[in-house]
């Protein structure tokens, strides 16, 4: 009964410890991954917008818009970039990747804005949009929209992987704890049984395996045997004295 209680307490301790580790690691992980990935995606989209803006100058000034469209089509193949549009110096749309058409929210937004904007487009999802001026803005502006849903999915995946790893460690830890507790509990149980037998003064009580152990359990067993022997001799002496009297 006492051993089971010890076992339960140990298991509870293990669970509590791992639970605290898992929770704190997950929170830290969510925060780190979310912050880093979001920053990374924003930086990427800013860089992509800048790259397109730099490459567009020559095309806008010297070439057909088909070449410009071909350029942005290649960039929109990059995962998590969901739309790109280019407006000219008057705000007119020169090229874009929207299907079936340019959303009303974008059509009515400021075409020269280059600051980060969060957009929720009906039927398309949530986006983070960044802009970059072409030729310091005198030739137009490039706008790149990153799908925040996809970013969230990637963050979730990264967190999921982290939690998966922690869960495996937890299971292995619990199994190891059970094994260790059993390893400690079995000799203690034997010792308890031996002590009870000695207390009952059962004849021929002896446990060589227990008495030969070179650890605390062995020392205790030998101590119990010694105390039990002393008590027995003391009671024999007392009995002899009574008889003498």
């Amino acid at each position: 009964m006492k051993i089971q209680k010890l076992f339960q307490k140990t298991m509870f301790g293990v669970f509590a410890l791992f639970g605290a580790i898992s929770l704190s690691t997950s929170i830290l992980c969510v925060y780190t991954v979310d912050t880093h990935l979001s920053e990374e995606y924003e930086n990427n989209s800013e860089n992509i917008a800048k790259t397109i803006a730099d490459s567009s100058v020559d095309i806008l000034l010297n070439r057909d818009l088909a070449a410009l469209q071909s350029l942005i089509d290649q960039f929109v193949e990059i995962q998590s970039i969901r739309y790109i549009y280019i407006t000219d110096e008057s705000g007119e749309f020169l090229a874009h990747t929207f299907v079936p058409g340019i959303p009303e929210e974008i059509r009515t937004s400021d075409p020269f804005n280059t600051a980060l904007v969060e957009r929720s487009l009906p039927g398309m999802g949530d986006f983070v949009e960044v802009g970059s001026p072409i030729l310091a803005g005198i030739a137009g502006t490039v706008h790149v929209g990153m799908d925040t849903g996809l970013i969230a999915l990637k963050i979730q995946r990264a967190i999921g992987q982290q939690i998966y790893l922690i869960s495996i460690i937890l299971v292995v830890g619990v199994l190891a704890a059970i094994w260790f507790v059993n390893l400690a509990a079995k000799p203690l149980g034997d010792l308890l049984g031996y002590a009870v037998d000695l207390a009952r003064g059962e004849e021929g009580t002896s446990n060589d395996k227990l008495l030969s152990r070179d650890d605390e359990v062995g020392h205790l067993a030998r101590l119990f045997l010694y105390v039990s022997g002393r008590e027995e001799s003391e009671s024999t002496n007392q009995r002899d004295e009574v008889q003498r009297r």
Binding site: A66, A67, T97, V99
Partner: peptide, 11 residues
């Protein structure tokens, strides 16, 4: 068509 061909005709 949302590509270079469509843009060429649109232009």
């Amino acid at each position: 068509q949302a590509d270079a061909y469509g843009r060429s005709g649109w232009a």
